[in-house]
Amino acid sequence: MADSNSRVIVITSGKGGVGKTTTTANIGVALSHHLGEKVALIDADIGLRNLDLALGLENRIVYDIVDVVEGRAKLRQALIKSKSNQNLALLPAAQTRDKSAVSPSQMIQIIQELQEEGYTYILIDCPAGIEQGFRNATAGATEAIVVTNPEMSSVRDADRIIGLLEAQELHSPYLIVNRLRPKMVKQQEMLAVEDVQDVLGSNVRLLGVIPEDEVIITSTNRGEPAALLEGNLAGQAYRNIARRLKGETVPFLNLDEKTGFFDRIKSIFGGKR
């Protein structure tokens, strides 16, 4: 491994569509834009490129990770720097190839080069599933974030992934619970964060909780991760996650803010909620 202090973190889940790409983009901008880290994001979802869209960088892609691996481009040529934020770079996935176009050892090579370039955080957006794409994405990582939704099949797959990470010496992964609906949790109709933690066991470390929030959709539409926008809970939650990753102790957000008008009046007058 390169003799740098950089952290190499894979964002994974097992089940598809739970928020890996959204999470990678948001933690990436929060670390680079707000916390001054030099961040490289690797889209390891080869064949299903998406991280570029979440970051609004899709029009700038010239070369991709497979071009680098196959020697058509240097890593530096393929990296796309965000215009508004020189501390953030994206290595895009190839869209027209499949997972077998990159091998674990090639992935490790790329990560070493990024470390030599001085990136302090290297975040890898893992594809869904447990096959080659997963093995590639985890190969060079030294830490893992497991994203899950508070929902049965997602938690089950997260557990499976935690076992597979273990087999790759990626112990005690971080956990992000995404798309939580506080109202349903209150009505006991959705697994609470504590339930998810209970079931997954004490070797996962809760890193943060993201509410279900329309701002995720609108911000992705614009190619501007929610963490860049003020005044929304999901973005705030992602900024807090970035700070926790850096070792700060940040209290968990109260997501229960969208209570009704009367609830708020009641609480102003000292009523219990």
């Binding site: 557990d159 006991q188 109709e189 339930d195």
Partner: peptide, 19 residues
């Protein structure tokens, strides 16, 4: 039982088997 408790119990069992 709340559906949350049902989900949690079912998950416990299925994970026992998976693990």
């Amino acid at each position: 039982k709340s559906t949350k408790d049902v989900a949690k119990n079912r998950l416990r069992f299925v994970l026992m088997h998976d693990r």
